[in-house]
Design a binder for these strands. Sequence first.
DNA 1: TGTGTATATAACAATATGCTTATACAATTT
DNA 2: AAATTGTATAAGCATATTGTTATATACACA
Lengths: 115, 115
Amino acid sequence: MQTTQYIDIETAAGLLKLLGDKTRLSMMKIMSEHECCVCELVDLFEMSQPAISQHVRKLKDSGLIKERRGGQWIYYSLNPDSPFHPFVLHILNELPSQRFKVDELEARGKRVCCD
Amino acid sequence: MQTTQYIDIETAAGLLKLLGDKTRLSMMKIMSEHECCVCELVDLFEMSQPAISQHVRKLKDSGLIKERRGGQWIYYSLNPDSPFHPFVLHILNELPSQRFKVDELEARGKRVCCD
DNA sequence: TGTGTATATAACAATATGCTTATACAATTT
DNA sequence: AAATTGTATAAGCATATTGTTATATACACA
């Protein structure tokens, strides 16, 4: 199933490498389900804030996600304007929802910090 | 668009990492178009035989491709029995045909060695 | 203006990746 | 059986990746 035009194979490899990390892939899936701030991701992945920030940066540099500033928080979500958005969505759609992770967090009392 | 069941996100990340290398991704696309022997891949990618062999092994270890022995040659192609075959095909289908590479080889007189 | 909170960046260390060269193995041919 | 050809494996090296800790920046609010 073909969404738009073909993607150059080298570009595709770059995108797949970017998604080929379980943290970033989960992030992307979660961001496809709702906008996230960094602190939420930190709690979700039980990973240091700089580590999260660096993953986010890679995704942002690729143009796959966009940021929106809201007060002192920065919210990230998929960037539908990316030429590769359809390609990526195609992949993300094959993956199970990660909402349960957010629910688990909630259950453990760690309320999502910034919404 | 959802082909079969969902793929565990960690497994998916592993697959995407495997595909997230331009050599392997091209190989996979080419193998989706025709069975290949190693020597053909060596010519196609202008890369040393051990380098090619090592990429092939990674793909084979993952179960994404299968091998068939024919005399002294070993032919590789996508393994349709892999539980991840649909997932991978989904991705490969978004990529342009690499047949032109084979054609180029042919044009340069380097006939494909083993068919 | 100063303090606290959210996020980013820098420097570094550990591990992973992908190539190279050298060598081994397997099938073919003489 | 020896030589040739196709492929795989091993060891080593260079570079990339991903985390850590320390520090910087941006905004909010008292």
